[in-house]
Write a protein that binds this DNA or RNA. Structure first.
Lengths: 189, 189
DNA sequence: GTCTTGACCTAATCGGTGTAGGCAAGATAC
DNA sequence: GTATCTTGCCTACACCGATTAGGTCAAGAC
C-alpha cells in the first residue's frame, strides 16, 4: 500500500494511479495484486487513509511549540508542504472515498484544529466556521498550485501572505481570541 | 457539445463523463461521435471552454451595478452558484486541459476581476495577489462543498461570511482601496 | 446522372480492471 | 515424515470503454 501511495505521488494524483503500473513496480502480474487488495477503489481508499494519518501527524507536530495564530499558520504551511511532497497522497485524502474509516480518521485530523482553537477560547460552533474557512483557502490554494495555475516563483510568500490575511480577518471576526489578535497585529507592524 | 456538458453536469464532474453514455444520450453508436469530436479529451476540453465563457459572462453580469467589495462578493457568489448548478462544467473549467485556447479564455475571465480591482486603484501586481487569494478561497470552498465535505445546511451563510472576512482582510492589506475599506467596515457594524 | 460529402453504421483492436482456476513452497498437524 | 493447509503467485479469460478501419446510404453539387 505504501508502494501504491508512492506511485500515486509520482503520478501527481491518485486518479492517475493504475494497477498495471503498480504491479509492474512490484515485479508482479496485475491479477496477483488482487490477493492483497479488493480493487483499484480499495487501493485509493487505502492511500486516503495513509494521507489522513500522515496529516494528523504533521499537523500535531506543526502545532506543537506554537499557539494560536502562529500554530495555525504553521499548520497551514505543513499542509501545503505535504501536498507538494505527496500530491498523490494529498489528492487521495481530499477526495471522496467517504466510508466509515475515512470519516473516523478525518475526525481525528479535525480534532487537532479544534484543540488549537479551543485552547484559545473558541467555541465548537465557531471553530466549525473557522476551520471551514481555513480548509477552503488552503485546499483551494494547494489544488490550484499543484495544477500549475499560479504562475510566479514567489508562491510560498503568496501563500503565507494569504494565510496571514485570512487569519487576521478570522481573528477579528471571532470573539474569544482577543489576545491572539493583539499579538498578530503587533507582529505585523 | 452542449449535450456533453449537460451530461457532465448530471454526472457531477467531467471525470465521470463517458462517450458511451453520451452516444446513448444522442441515440447514436459510440464510434459515430468521432465524426464530431477528436476524443474524450477533446470533449472535456470543449466543456472547459464553455465553462470559461459562461464564467466570464456571469462574472461581468455579477459585477455590473456594484463596485469594489460589493462587486467582488457578488462575483464570488456567482461562481459558487454556477458551480452548484453546473458541477460538470465547473470542474472542466477548473481542471487542466491547459491549451492555447484555454489560456486565452481564462485570461478574459481574469480580466473581469482585474477591471473591478483596477477601477479602485489596485496595481496589476497587487491584483494578482488579490485574485489568487480570492480564487483559492472560492475554489476550495466550492470544491469541498460539492464533495459533500461540509455538513450543515447553512453553507451559503458560511460562504458569505468567509468571503466577507477574506475581503475585509484583503482590503486592509492592500493600499489604494481605502474608500472601499471604509465602506465595508461601516456596513458591518 | 454521377460525384462528393456527411452522418451514420458494424466489426475489430487496444488498454485496463477484475475473475477463475491451477501450481509450488513453506508452515502446521498428526 | 507424510498429509494438508495456506500463501502468493501464475496463466487464461471475460468485460468495459475508447478508438480505428472501412463500408453504406442519402442529399445536394455539378
Amino acid at each position: 500500500m505504501h508502494a501504491a501511495a508512492d506511485l500515486a505521488d509520482e503520478r501527481g494524483t491518485v486518479d492517475n494511479l493504475q494497477l498495471v503500473e503498480l504491479a509492474e513496480r512490484l515485479s508482479v502480474r496485475t491479477p496477483s495484486l488482487y490477493a492483497h487488495v479488493e480493487s483499484l477503489e480499495d487501493v485509493r481508499r487505502g492511500i486516503a487513509l495513509i494521507a489522513l494519518a500522515d496529516m494528523r501527524e504533521i499537523l500535531s507536530h506543526a502545532a506543537s511549540g506554537h499557539s494560536g495564530a502562529d500554530a495555525l499558520l504553521a499548520m497551514a504551511r505543513a499542509i501545503r508542504s505535504y501536498a507538494r511532497e505527496h500530491p498523490g497522497r494529498y489528492s487521495a485524502g481530499a477526495a471522496p472515498p467517504r466510508d466509515k474509516d475515512w470519516h473516523e480518521v478525518q475526525r481525528t485530523v479535525r480534532a487537532v484544529f479544534v484543540t488549537v482553537l479551543a485552547r484559545h477560547g473558541l467555541s465548537d460552533d465557531d471553530a466549525t466556521e473557522f476551520i471551514r474557512a481555513l480548509r477552503a483557502a488552503i485546499h483551494g490554494f494547494v489544488t490550484l498550485e499543484l495544477q500549475g495555475d499560479f504562475g510566479g516563483p514567489d508562491r510560498a510568500a503568496s501563500f503565507d501572505r494569504i494565510m496571514r490575511i485570512l487569519l487576521k480577518g478570522l481573528l477579528d471576526e471571532f470573539p474569544g481570541l482577543a489576545a491572539e489578535r493583539r499579538r498578530l497585529r503587533a507582529a505585523s507592524t
